[in-house]
Design a binder for these strands. Structure first.
Lengths: 98, 98
DNA sequence: GGGCCGCTCTGCTGTGAGCGGAACGCCGCA
DNA sequence: TGCGGCGTTCCGCTCACAGCAGAGCGGCCC
């Protein structure tokens, strides 16, 4: 169960990047609006850093998201993750098909 | 919108405490199962510390929760928060009634 | 080939995560 | 009523890391 889930920072980071790209924005644009460095936003998106609560608020705010929007989206991502895990997905099967 | 929401660490901490108490557990019990100090768990629950992703996983795991359970619960909490805010709740009105 | 752009890498410093010992309040019992 | 135990919080500490500035890398265009 919990062994198979991503860590919080990976889950969060992936969603933030997906949303930023969906908005057609560059790292520097979103970072500037959030008041953080582009380097740092890159790290957060790649799950390399643990953002503080204030940073989470600033970055999601810059993407026009409330914490509610964010947690709902993360729940969706985790559901998809569980569904994928339940489908007995095997990377080696894909490699052989390619 | 985002101005009126709680910070992530407060949101998370409140839910973890509520769930622990709902399980009828003491700080020390849950902390031991999570492999953290009781002092630290107390701090996390009160939103005084920013737990790392591994700590979030350990504590929620100790409460029998997946990250999905957790994010769903947090979304519910935020919805309640927004509903309360939308009802034009006024602390001073309550104080006068008491 | 050089400049520009977008993103990532590298190294740094001050801050805070996580914890051990102590303190506090509450409760039950002799 | 004083004491011990329990549950939680306070306090101070150390070292890891959050957040960032400068540099590096690859791609694209003139």
């Amino acid at each position: 169960m919990t062994d198979l889930e991503p860590l919080w920072r990976h889950l969060l980071g992936r969603r933030l990047r997906v949303l930023r790209l969906a908005h057609g924005e560059k790292l520097a644009e979103t970072a500037a609006r959030a008041g953080v460095s582009p380097q740092y936003l890159s790290e957060v998106e790649r799950g390399l850093k643990e953002p503080s609560s204030e940073m989470i608020a600033a970055i999601s705010g810059a993407l026009g998201l409330s914490l509610l929007d964010l947690t709902l989206g993360l729940s969706d991502d985790l559901r998809s993750f569980h569904e994928l895990a339940a489908s007995d997905y095997r990377p080696s099967a894909l490699l052989m098909a390619a």
